[in-house]
């Protein structure tokens, strides 16, 4: 339990991210999900408002249904295949992105910048990194070829003016630069954090606040962001997680592997 502003919260940061991310998914969509928050959000959506949502896993899985309490450790183990419609080679499941069958890809990241570029490769100079991060995985492919939802904790060190390394492209330098680089489809759509929902101006492609979570002010968000944010007009306030959403989520992850 913690408190922001006047609202007492009875959920963890990961639970808030997961619930908000699940609401951004719609029935009938095909969703490329990693494990952790993305998978829980997609499964929660399936159980609450999007029964016809299809999950894809990078390991080569089409349309699985996850068994509560039996969450996979990555997208590449047999737990990912429970009640799946199909398994196929990795290259072929990733090819569905390029072919255009995927509505939404889910990403996280160490760093994101004002144009939605994501870094999961290096902190510091890539030739002499302070920290070598695990790298792209399918992140670059998802970000290049699909509309992307990003779920991450809102911290100043993560929301930076310019990422140190573009692992997964957002709108690059803004404006038409993504298209000019040869990326003809997709792009970041929503950034969901523990404070707000952010989107992008349709022309400049600069990040802007679309909605604040209950009890959060614009100043709270600005204080934790390393660059100036634009504001959408009107600015919405999200509804807090409901009992039903939280109950269902905790049922999916009873060991609190990913929602602690």
């Amino acid at each position: 339990m913690n408190e922001i502003g006047s609202v007492t919260r009875s959920w963890t940061t990961s639970e808030l991210l997961t619930v908000m991310a699940s609401r951004a998914l719609h029935d009938g969509q095909i969703v490329f999900a990693g494990v952790g928050v993305p998978l829980l959000a997609a499964t929660l959506a399936q159980r609450l408002h999007a029964p016809g949502l299809t999950i894809l896993f990078e390991g080569g899985v089409i349309g699985p249904f996850i068994v509560p309490g039996d969450l996979p450790p990555s997208t590449n183990e047999q737990r990912c295949t429970r009640r799946a419609n199909m398994v196929c080679p990795i290259t072929d499941v990733l090819m569905l992105l390029q072919r255009g069958f995927v509505d939404v890809g889910f990403l996280g990241g160490a760093e994101i910048d004002r144009y939605g570029n994501i870094n999961t490769s290096f902190i510091g100079d890539p030739d002499h990194p302070k920290t070598r991060l695990p790298g792209s995985g399918g992140g670059n492919d998802i970000a290049s070829l699909a509309h992307v939802i990003v779920a991450m904790k809102h911290e100043k060190r993560r929301f930076v003016e310019r990422v140190q390394f573009v692992t997964s492209p957002g709108y690059l330098e803004g404006g038409a630069s993504r298209h000019e680089a040869g990326l003809l489809a997709g792009g970041p759509k929503v950034i969901i954090t523990d404070l707000a929902e952010l989107g992008f101006d349709p022309v400049t492609k600069r990040m802007r606040i679309e909605a604040l979570h209950p009890g959060v002010s614009v100043e709270d968000v600005e204080a934790k962001t390393g660059f100036d944010l634009d504001l959408a007009d009107p600015l919405r306030v999200t509804a807090p997680p409901t009992e039903r959403e939280l109950e269902m989520l905790r049922e999916l992850d009873p060991d609190r592997l990913y929602i602690a």
């Binding site: 490769s121 070829l145 390394f165 573009v166």
Partner: peptide, 10 residues
Amino acid sequence: PIRSLMGSDV
């Protein structure tokens, strides 16, 4: 040929 990678530091 591939349609990802473009524009990235990768």
